[in-house]
């Protein structure tokens, strides 16, 4: 007897579980979502390469605003959380629920550190005079990284719920492993989006004396 409408057990036409397929479809769609956000940021960087004007009317360079050590640290943290997530999924496949809990706690912890870094960064930039209202750069930067941060926060919430759900004893077997794997796919995606943001938003600002975007244009003080 087959249970056609019950996603986890039913044999599917392709052999791919419904939940995994729909998550990949969502991620394909999310590529366009973050593509739009990132390109909004990049095209304004291209149009207005030299930075922004703060509340006192001073011209500010983005290179002087950014703190590459902090961002590198949070990038590293997010990468390692991705690694722990892969281990958590692996543990679920092996039926090692305790190992799953340990790893997923690590993911949550690292995710929270990343969010903490972002909160620190936002506060720091705000005190440096960058607001969402005073420049296009402020708008695109805060909305892009903030949207990514929201994705991270949703991921953390999801993993916390999975963590506590695992104590009910209902998270197990093939269905449980699949549920964790799907949450993991989401988490990894949030991580790879940050890989792009790290390069396209942060690193390129350090290239050359006036920054990559200032290339070929007269530098005004």
């Amino acid at each position: 007897m087959s249970q056609v409408s019950e996603p986890a057990h039913a044999p599917t036409s392709t052999g791919i579980e419904h939940k995994k397929l729909i998550m990949w479809l969502f991620l394909a769609s999310d590529c366009m979502f973050f593509g739009t956000l990132i390109s909004t940021h990049l095209l304004y960087r291209k149009l207005y390469p030299t930075g922004f004007t703060d509340a006192e009317g001073h011209q500010r360079f983005i290179q002087n605003l950014f703190n590459i050590e902090l961002t590198s640290f949070s990038t590293f943290i997010l990468l390692m959380s991705s690694f722990l997530m892969a281990l958590a999924v692996s543990a679920m496949h092996k039926g090692q629920i305790k190992s799953f809990r340990r790893n997923v706690l690590g993911v949550i912890f690292f995710g929270l550190i990343f969010l903490g870094c972002q909160v620190f960064e936002f506060t720091h930039f705000f005190h440096q005079g960058l607001t969402i209202q005073n420049s296009v750069f402020g708008s695109t930067f805060y909305v892009l990284t903030g949207t990514h941060g929201t994705h991270v926060a949703i991921g953390i919430l999801w993993l916390i719920l999975l963590y506590f759900y695992s104590f009910t004893g209902k998270l197990g077997g093939h269905v449980g492993a699949l549920d964790v794997e799907v949450a993991g796919l989401y988490w990894h995606f949030v991580d790879i989006v940050w890989i792009i943001i790290f390069t396209a938003v942060y690193l390129v600002e350090y290239l050359g004396p006036s920054g990559f975007w200032g290339t070929g244009l007269p530098l005004t003080k």
Binding site: T14, G15, I16, K20, L21, W24, L25, L27, A28, S29, D30, C31, M32, S82, F83, M85, A86, V89, E181, G184, L185, H188, F189, D191
Partner: peptide, 19 residues
């Protein structure tokens, strides 16, 4: 990490289409 190398090829192509 996202298992595309172990999983069905269709998933890879779906994602790459979006990307």
């Amino acid at each position: 990490f996202m298992h595309l190398i172990y999983d069905h090829r269709l998933l890879f192509w779906l994602f790459v289409t979006g990307l």
